[in-house]
Write a protein that binds this DNA or RNA. Sequence first.
DNA 1: CATTGTGAAGCGTTTCACAGCC
DNA 2: GGCTGTGAAACGCTTCACAATG
Lengths: 226, 226
Amino acid sequence: MPSDRSRRRIPDATVARLPVYLRILTEQAEEGVDSMSSDRLAELAGVNAAKVRKDLSYLGSYGTRGVGYEVAYLVYQIRRELGLTRDWPVVIVGAGNLGQALAGYGGFGERGFPVAGVVDIDPGKVGSVLAGVRVRHIDELPSIVQAKRVSIGVIATPSLAAQDAADHLVAAGVTSILNFAPVVLTVPRSVEVRKVDLAVELQILCYHEQRRGGGLHAVTTRSATA
Amino acid sequence: MPSDRSRRRIPDATVARLPVYLRILTEQAEEGVDSMSSDRLAELAGVNAAKVRKDLSYLGSYGTRGVGYEVAYLVYQIRRELGLTRDWPVVIVGAGNLGQALAGYGGFGERGFPVAGVVDIDPGKVGSVLAGVRVRHIDELPSIVQAKRVSIGVIATPSLAAQDAADHLVAAGVTSILNFAPVVLTVPRSVEVRKVDLAVELQILCYHEQRRGGGLHAVTTRSATA
DNA sequence: CATTGTGAAGCGTTTCACAGCC
DNA sequence: GGCTGTGAAACGCTTCACAATG
């Protein structure tokens, strides 16, 4: 079978939206919807219909002109493109407030990212159990990563420990990192890093908040996604 | 005094980086650094030096040719531009795992975003105390927002409750929302929404992870910021 | 003479507009 | 007729390259 294994390059902006479409399509499928137009999907995703069509066109031509897209098939194609046809175990570094919240957040495992382990450098935290997962010492990272074939690490440590956490993850063989600490990490080029920074998000909101500086606003309705 | 009150429009991409520069400059100031070149700041921020200069040029011409930027002055200017010269109290909706972690995260108040209140719709959670903040019922939202002049709300509820939380926030007068629930919110145009979505971030990492599909990687070093 | 500030070129993303197709 | 798929235009952001300047 000469499989159409896509070696196409999909634009970053599109990759960032595919998960949103995927969630919406999955929900709609559960509600019994089995066909959808780009217009409808655009409305639910809070974006422009042309963008939806162009985004989906990078996956291939999976729509039917005059009809729309078959929801189940599109779900399958997006999942395949994103690499979600298998589970991706993650390891969480840092068993503080945030690490606990993340480990306890069920939606993680449900969405195909089972928590393969939680580690911390503080011997005082090692051994305690978070949401069914026992906290282990950071020295055990390499064995966890190898045993469970983990390639994604989540950094949930305080800022000062984050670079150290990254170094441990990289040394253990992790190749993708989701960083919650507000610091710029230095890692090998081959390692992909994404950052989630609360303070940055709030400060951006702040900028707009300050800019409106007391004007009154017409109240029209629209949809919003990041 | 004919104050140079900037009504310039700063590009979104720049606004998103200013908080990163601000954090770095603040740290450097604490370490006694009082002057810095765009090259150095770029290195610490993990971006290109031309970008730093262009970004800073939107604030005005605050550098000195041949020398660099005075750290303290730049910190002041960025803070002013972002509207960080005052505190912005936030209210958190949802006292579950995430709400608790957020309320307990000290860095919040430190960075100028004191938690003005935590509310939940579940009477069972009302009254409990999270990190020194008593959880109140969502019906008290309007009075909290008015009393503390809150304009930023944080949604830390399960997905199903998020739109409801947004409606409550908007009704109470909040004009900026940071949404942690993986749903697209519908709000008036005048309300600014930013979204933080764990699953989306992981799925993006996944895409790249899957794409490399077993190649070996040269290990060079670089810096990364989102 | 090191470093800023910035026009202008380059590049990626969004949107338009319509041909192609069911 | 309705909706997809997509060239091409428009837009915004990044990077280059260098004149301006303390």
